[in-house]
Amino acid sequence: MTDVLAIADHRRGKLRDVSYEIATAGRGLADDLGGDLHLVVISGTVDDFAAKLDRDGVDVVHTVSDGEEYNHDIYIQAIEQLTADIDPQYVLVPNSVNGLDYAPALAGRLERPIVTDTIGLESDGETLVATREMYGGKVETTVELEGPAVVTIRGAEWPKAEGTGDAEIRSFDVEIDDAALGSTVNGFEEVAGGDVDIADADVLVSVGRGIDEEENLEIIHDLADALDATVSSSRPIVDNGWLPKNRQVGQSGKVVTPDVYIAIGISGAVQHVAGMKGSETIVAINTDPNAPIMDIADYAIHDDLFDVVPALTEQFQ
């Protein structure tokens, strides 16, 4: 058991970036083990996907043509059967919303342990050493597990595999037990539409949990007006209904890359950082000097936003 099997992620006809990143993570582990890297792409236009996934370092791309869109029961049955066939030491799954929907059940079927949301991986063949965060990114940890495992990897932690490889593309026939399909996808809906597109803004004044109360948002709007900037936010503000969904920056909201991103009272949970770390200049205003946002900020003020924000607004009036 020296091979690695990595599962591609796609949605509505498009491969997601993590599919190329998981090829890099998988190649690294396969090198540790001295084995092959297998990718598998399940459902949809698999031949087209397989051609795109044939990048440097990929040995085999398996295609499973059953199903159109993601269905966890089809994924699990396909991966279970493929795992029985190629016997990989590690099964790598993207730590995406869909990855987290099937990987834990897959681990159960394979009778393997699972470790999720990893940001670094190494193996000596028997012991897997995985790096992952705890406490909302305040600390990093290493955890070890023995033997074959299912592992999910965080997006945007590994570079994308590049180039054109010479992978063998194999169509894999699975027997799908239709009686085991217990859920039906009826459609998709875009929920972050509306009049404002925060992805177009040059300057974002972005507010998080530190604002405490809805009425305090006024100082944020005042600052945005003074700077001729657009207001965006982290998730809790939208969860509370204080700003509409189209203002949310992050994994489940929008990815933004403004010239200047001013993070006010935002701790910098990984889901938020995923949506804004490409900003040209990041300024963080937060009382907590250890907040994860400080790890990606270019400029920081470790002070109370209720003092700093009005003072800043005044500078532009």
């Binding site: 996808v185 929008k254 990815v255």
Partner: peptide, 14 residues
């Protein structure tokens, strides 16, 4: 189900 990028999946579960 809340997917990434402001997309929701409408699903029936037994």
């Amino acid at each position: 189900r809340e997917l990434e990028g402001g997309v929701e999946e409408l699903t029936d579960v037994d």
